[in-house]
Simulated assay, not measured.
Amino acid sequence: MNVRLHIERLVLDEAWGGVEPAVLGRMVERELTRLLAGSRLDRGLAVSGAVAAIRGGDVPGRETAAGAGGLAAQISAAVHAGLTGESRGAP
């Protein structure tokens, strides 16, 4: 099965002002690819095809992330939770 995922926009609050968006985007892409490689999609997604939006988990915030890498891991975990139905916390 192939999965095509398009994230139109990542919105960061002012606390993340020093994070380079293009770098963060690439980090999220790599981490999400890694997470999805060994996962199954939520049953509803697997049978329904295209979906306009999926609610993922929450991203805790800067105090629990170490720079762009930590933020990318948190974002990826939240998106992964929405795609798979697994309610894992951010790493």
Rank of each mutant, 00 (worst) to 15 (best):
M1D: 11
M1V: 07
N2Y: 09
V3Q: 07
V3L: 15
R4Y: 04
R4G: 03
R4T: 11
L5H: 00
L5A: 00
I7R: 12
E8G: 14
E8S: 12
R9W: 00
R9K: 13
L10E: 02
V11L: 15
L12S: 12
L12F: 08
D13T: 10
E14N: 14
E14D: 13
A15G: 14
A15T: 13
A15H: 15
W16Y: 14
W16A: 15
G17L: 14
G17Q: 14
G18P: 10
G18Y: 12
V19R: 14
V19S: 08
V19L: 15
E20P: 00
E20Q: 11
E20A: 14
P21F: 11
A22K: 10
V23P: 00
V23G: 10
V23K: 10
L24Q: 03
L24W: 00
G25Q: 08
G25F: 06
R26P: 00
M27I: 03
M27K: 14
V28G: 10
V28T: 08
E29L: 12
R30Y: 06
R30D: 05
E31F: 07
E31C: 08
T33V: 12
R34F: 12
L35Y: 11
L35W: 05
L36W: 07
L36G: 09
L36R: 08
L36E: 07
L36D: 09
L36N: 08
A37I: 02
A37M: 13
G38N: 15
G38W: 08
S39D: 13
S39W: 07
S39E: 15
R40G: 13
R40Y: 13
L41R: 04
L41H: 09
L41I: 01
D42S: 13
R43F: 08
G44R: 11
G44Y: 09
L45P: 03
L45H: 06
L45V: 00
V47A: 15
V47L: 15
S48M: 11
S48A: 11
S48W: 03
G49F: 05
G49H: 04
A50Q: 11
A50N: 05
A50K: 11
V51A: 14
A52L: 10
A53G: 09
A53S: 07
A53N: 05
I54C: 13
I54N: 03
I54V: 15
I54M: 12
G57E: 12
D58Y: 07
V59A: 01
V59W: 02
P60F: 09
P60A: 13
G61I: 05
G61D: 03
G61T: 04
G61E: 00
R62V: 05
E63G: 01
E63A: 09
T64L: 14
T64S: 05
A66V: 04
G67C: 01
G67Q: 02
G67H: 01
A68E: 04
A68N: 01
G70V: 09
L71C: 00
A72C: 06
A72T: 02
A72R: 02
A73N: 07
A73D: 01
A73W: 01
A73F: 01
Q74D: 02
Q74L: 12
Q74R: 13
I75E: 00
I75M: 04
I75S: 04
I75L: 12
A77L: 05
A78R: 05
H80Q: 06
A81S: 14
A81V: 03
G82L: 00
L83R: 06
T84F: 03
T84N: 10
T84Q: 04
G85W: 01
G85S: 08
G85A: 05
E86Y: 02
S87T: 04
R88A: 07
R88E: 06
G89Y: 06
G89A: 15
